[in-house]
């Protein structure tokens, strides 16, 4: 059974008179343990697709099964639970809580799954160790470099042992050297822990880290299926 299975996915934005099809009949499936990169021109629907499979947004049409669950039938709180247990997010802009230390940022998903204080701290420290930031645990986001902030975000995605990491342009704000370090970290996680990883990128050499490339154009998948 595929981990992610979407078919006929459509997302239509209505703005006044104009209807805009950000996604139009997207059908694909992603297997457990895959490392996928999504490419395509700006506005082709990559982020829209990622947000829907991440349960942050809902499609206008089409079906979506995540790990065998029909996501379209779930309530707000059930979707929150799915995000908490199954998905780790890494964003282009890091999206860490400001004025909140690295360790506390990493602990966040555990707070919402009611993990007790001591275990929470240990698991958060372990996740920070995996991304090589155990000695920065009490730094605030603004005391960390961009690359380090992105590592904290990756640690946060790892901490609840989610089977999927979704990363929308994770290296978009980083220089080439740091980008490569982040990508190597993701590759390690994919190979060693079997985490399924989907990234969006504009850069061909970043996409080279993945085994499969999906191309979007005007809200459709044009290759990689």
């Amino acid at each position: 059974m595929a981990l992610i299975d979407v078919s006929g996915l459509c997302k239509t934005y209505v703005m006044g008179e104009v209807k805009l099809n950000a996604l139009c009949g997207v059908t694909t499936s992603i297997q457990r343990g895959e490392f996928i990169s999504i490419m395509g021109p700006s506005g082709s629907g990559k982020s829209t697709f990622m947000n829907i499979i991440g349960c942050l947004d809902t499609p206008t049409e089409g079906s979506y099964r995540l790990d065998g669950i029909d996501v379209r039938g779930l309530s707000r709180d059930q979707l929150a639970e799915v995000r908490n247990k199954k998905i780790g997010f890494v964003f282009q802009g890091f999206n860490l809580l400001p004025r909140t230390s690295a360790i506390e940022n990493v602990e966040l998903p555990l707070i919402y799954s009611a993990v007790s204080g001591k275990e929470r701290f240990e698991r958060a420290m372990e996740a920070l160790r995996v991304v090589g930031l155990q000695d920065r645990s009490h730094h605030m986001p603004n005391q960390l470099s961009g690359g380090q902030q992105q590592r904290v975000a990756i640690a946060r995605a790892l901490v609840n042992r989610a089977p999927i990491i979704l990363a929308d342009e994770p290296t978009g704000n980083l220089d080439t050297k740091t980008s490569n370090e982040i990508m190597e970290l993701l590759v390690t996680l994919n190979q060693d822990s079997g985490i399924t990883i989907v990234i969006v990128t504009h850069e061909a050499d970043i996409a080279e880290y993945s085994k499969r490339k999906i191309r979007f154009l005007d809200g459709r998948i044009v290759s990689g299926n």
Binding site: E81, L97, P98, L108, P109, S113, R156
Partner: peptide
């Protein structure tokens, strides 16, 4: 609002 978004993304319920 962004903070709320981040919290929701990592699993905060209503």
């Amino acid at each position: 609002t962004r903070e709320i978004g981040i919290r929701m993304a990592v699993g905060a319920k209503t």
